[in-house]
Design a binder for these strands. Structure first.
Length: 559
RNA sequence: GUGUCCGUAGCGCAAUUGGAUAGAGUGACAGCCUCCGACGCUGUAGGUUCCGGGUUCGAUUCCCGGCGGGCACACCA
């Protein structure tokens, strides 16, 4: 229940409820109260000193069985909620909703397109792709949880000169068995070699362009090679997506939009937006403080912008989205500002519904990555090492455990996902094995361990439970308050496109539960208390599972 | 150079959108398994929130100016 609204409605009849509710904050210390009303803004309208207002409001507030106390301190009114009431409401809600606890129907079935991961064909999945993939996937799950209809789109990078380079390299130095055996990494080795050789012999670049032209002209051999490379890539990334629990509804990539570019270019021309500049066709954006947006190169070829324009129009026509998110690194801030502005100038009123969800970049400790130079850390290697580490820890601490391999996978993969989602998305990340392989402290492993501990308690304590308690101790109350906070956290995470809110929430809840666990005996408590504490334990487990689930992280029963 | 984002404890980060005494983690040091899972818990030390102005009852948060860094800036994506 919404205590802010409840309090605001009763503060004073002549003060607008909405304003009071928005002013209500949380006191820095629960000893002071559960909600606080700062009276400084009211001082202006009421023409009285804040401290005096606080005293009057506290004195006149009608306390009841829900809000049991209102006291004035330094210009704040602190309200205290009845703990047993709060606990009963919260636990009952969690047990009624279970794996749906925290969800809502606020999305009203509205469609939200989410463009994420968007891998390039023929390039192995490396840690640079991790953020967009897990961020996008978490946003997908969040939207689903809150009643939207998400459409996950993997906008494949399956068009461009790089495929000419690849074919050139394959025909010069590659062979079928080698690629079939070595997969994407072998293919990428050819790509790296191409760039090395092209440094010495620039004519290779022309050869590559010629091969790309052959693909466009539907040359049988070139197209067959292109499809083979594409299939290899999809197989390879498919394995990764499965491990990460990531899914897509559409794989329409750049090549899909080639025949949809013409109409968009025509429309730009008809609307008088296209001008010639240095031989290229551009939309002038100087009035908006941006460099021109190039639509057609001087040789007539389309560009990234052109394809994205066509894709945006297609998505609007196909899905009639309420919003369309682009989960792409902040490197491309200007690109999206230009893209959205051009659509706006075209008169698309839905341009305002396009959102660039920008996130920070990943680099290595010794500098940035480079696929061309082969200087990359492959995601599959990272996952393998994390799973290995998890397996080693289990072997050491819980050797009798069954299904070691499967549990190690859940823990190891969780560590990879969690590491990418724990901080604000705008932060840059310097990748290091030391960090991802550390399973202590604020990590998914910590949360999973807390779940395993809760599971163990529940197994020994039996299924009976009670949502009511006569007296609630501070440690129990901290857990209750945190549990009650989950739906609001999920809402905020979606509103700000910040899955890290959910990740941090899970750690906070686990910390509060562990504090409670150490200070309060559950199984040896007096019967009524014992039943209540078992309920608290189960509610915590349900909520932690829901939180990690939204991030794509599983929770083993034991570990 | 222009635009944009960022700067918080030794380190990597939080801070409920402007609220009361800036918080956890990690690393360091000191403790806790003959009590429900020690992948855990408790305690100590660690801060001029980059600097200088301004707005405000109140600024880590908003505005202006510096300093430092990331990114982008015409035919790559």
């Amino acid at each position: 229940m919404d205590f802010k609204q409840y309090i605001a409605a009763r503060v004073r009849a002549d003060l607008p409820q909405e304003e009071i509710a928005s002013l209500l904050a949380l006191p820095p210390d629960t000893a002071m109260g559960d909600f606080a009303l700062p009276c400084f803004k009211l001082a202006k309208t009421l023409r009285k000193a804040p401290a005096l207002i606080a005293q009057e409001l506290a004195a006149s507030y009608p306390t009841d069985e829900i809000v049991v106390e209102a006291s004035a301190v330094n210009g704040y009114v602190n309200f205290r909620i009845d703990r047993a009431f709060w606990a009963e409401r919260t636990l009952a809600c969690i047990f009624a909703e279970r794996e749906r606890y925290g969800s809502s129907d606020e999305g009203q079935g509205r469609t939200v397109c989410i463009d994420y991961s968007s891998v390039n064909i023929a390039k192995p999945f490396h840690i640079g792709h991790l953020s967009t993939t897990v961020l996008g996937s978490a946003l997908y799950k969040l939207h689903q949880f809150l009643g939207y209809r998400p459409v996950g789109i993997n906008h494949l990078g399956d068009y461009g000169t790089q495929f000419g380079k690849l074919i050139s390299a394959y025909k010069r130095w590659g062979n079928r068995e080698e690629i079939e055996k070595g997969g994407l990494r072998a293919l990428n080795a050819l790509y790296v070699r191409f760039h090395e050789e092209a440094e010495k012999d620039p004519s290779l670049e022309d050869e590559a362009r010629a091969f790309f032209k052959k693909i466009e002209d539907r040359d049988e051999e070139s197209v067959a090679l292109f499809h083979w490379f594409k299939d290899l890539t999809l197989q390879d990334v498919g394995r990764i997506y499965e491990m990460l629990d990531v899914h897509f509804d559409s794989w329409a990539g750049e090549s899909f939009y080639i025949d949809k570019i013409g109409p968009v270019v025509d429309e730009l021309r008809e609307k008088g937006l296209l001008v010639e500049s240095e031989g290229a066709q551009v939309v002038d954006l100087e009035a908006y403080g941006m460099p021109p947006c190039i639509i057609l190169r001087s040789d007539g070829a389309s560009l990234y912008h052109t394809r994205d324009l066509a894709a945006a129009v297609y998505r609007k026509e196909t899905y009639d989205f309420y919003k369309c998110l682009y989960v792409v690194a902040y490197q491309q801030n200007l690109h999206f500002r230009q893209l959205f502005k051009v659509l706006e100038l075209m008169g698309k009123d839905w341009a305002k519904d396009l959102i660039h969800v920008a996130y920070g970049m990943v680099s290595l400790e010794d500098g940035s990555m480079s696929t061309r130079k082969g200087k990359v850390v492959y995601l599959e290697d990272v996952i393998d090492k994390c799973v290995e580490k998890a397996l080693a820890v289990i072997a050491e601490k819980n050797p009798a455990l069954e299904n070691k391999q499967e549990i190690a996978k859940t823990v190891g993969v969780g560590a990879v996902i969690f590491g990418a989602l724990y901080n604000n998305k705008i932060k840059d990340i310097t990748f290091s094995y030391d960090k991802v392989l550390n399973f202590e402290g604020e990590t998914s492993c910590y949360v999973q361990y807390t779940c395993a501990r809760a599971n163990s308690v529940l197994q020994k304590g039996g299924r009976a439970r009670a949502t009511k308690a006569e007296a609630i101790c501070p440690q129990e109350f901290e857990v209750i308050k945190q549990l009650a906070e989950f739906p609001a956290t999920v809402h905020d995470a979606l509103e700000k496109y910040e899955p890290c809110f959910v990740a941090r929430y899970a750690v906070d809840l686990a910390q509060k539960y562990n504090k409670f666990y150490f200070d309060c005996s559950i199984l040896n408590a007096e019967e009524k208390t014992r039943q209540f504490r078992l309920a608290l334990t189960e509610a915590t487990l349900i909520t932690l599972k829901n939180a990690l689930g939204l991030l794509g992280i599983g929770v083993p029963e034991k570990m």
